[in-house]
Design a protein around this nucleic acid. Structure first.
Length: 290
DNA sequence: TTTAATGT
């Protein structure tokens, strides 16, 4: 090879190296911007960090789907949301649109169609609720609550009665009482893996129970947590189902407030404190669809 | 204005 040819090759090589460096720079800066914006958005929708796994396993692994007004921790193994997280605050002059239709979410790996629960005896139960999300976050957010990634198989007596009563108490009583609350809610699955493999509606695993954690973020933060099994009558007092956050963390393998300092976590997550929630006046309120 | 959802 001639000297001239060698030097041409060398300068080509340099040019492509330069191009690669510039591209890499753009990718790094671009993804850095994306990452910091994404993190800022996630943080704005959660208190003390987005829920994550306490123990990492195929059963706690999930990815965060970002919706208008709420986040979903989606598991392609359970084919279920493991948690949803959203803020609720006071609004006046509430008027919401009609319920939109259920829609497939194309971000999920396995297809979950609006008719996937057909004939199963299970309702398509909302995790981020239609009414409260629509009232606080508007029509776009309401639309997103009808994505199948926000739904999970729920027994009608739970979905339409006990769970509906709890959702109503949160938006109509707790929110006015505390001005703003953070809610994290999701399913609880069978302890034994094989039970979960067997109990499915199509591809979707059927939860055994559901939790709802309500936080009042203030200097003296306050938390209330419920754990409700599928198998309920629907007219039970809500406070029959109170548990500590630790119980839910143990059952789900999730860490709900990863940024909460250890010192605060102990009492906030380990105890059931009902002072100030006025549960006696809301626990037995009747449902709308008795 | 009106909180759930089902072969309505």
């Amino acid at each position: 090879m001639t000297r001239r040819r060698k030097s041409i090759l060398r300068s080509r090589w340099r040019r492509s190296l330069r191009r690669f460096a510039v591209t890499l720079l753009f990718v790094l800066v671009g993804s850095g911007l994306w990452y910091s914006q994404e993190r800022a958005y996630r943080d704005s929708l959660s208190w003390m960090g987005v829920p994550t796994w306490e123990r990492l396993s195929p059963l706690t692994l999930h990815r965060v789907l970002r919706n208008d007004g709420f986040l979903v921790g989606w598991s392609d193994v359970r084919v279920n949301p493991l948690w949803v997280s959203y803020w609720l605050h006071e609004v006046d002059g509430v008027s919401i649109g009609a319920r939109p239709g259920f829609r497939r979410d194309w971000r999920t790996l396995w297809p979950v169609a609006p008719d996937s629960y057909f004939g199963s005896g299970y309702d398509r139960g909302h995790l981020a609720p239609n009414y409260a999300i629509a009232a606080v976050h508007g029509a776009g957010a309401q639309h997103d609550t009808f994505l199948m990634s926000n739904l999970t198989p729920q027994r009608p007596d739970l979905n339409r009665r006990l769970w509906q009563r709890l959702e109503e108490v949160v938006i109509d009583h707790f929110v006015p009482r505390f001005a703003a609350v953070q809610v994290i809610t999701g399913p609880v699955f069978a302890e034994r893996f094989l039970d979960g493999v067997r109990r499915r509606v199509g591809l979707v695993e059927v939860p055994e129970a559901f939790y709802k954690i309500i936080v009042v973020p203030a200097e003296t933060s306050r938390v209330l947590a419920f754990l409700m099994p599928q198998d309920v009558q629907g007219d039970e007092p809500l406070d029959d189902f109170l548990v500590s956050v630790d119980v839910i963390a143990a059952r789900t393998g999730l860490d709900f407030f990863p940024q909460l300092p250890e010192s605060a976590a102990g009492s906030l997550e380990g105890e059931v404190v009902t002072d100030g929630w006025a549960l006696e006046s809301v626990s037995r309120l009747p449902g709308r669809f008795e």
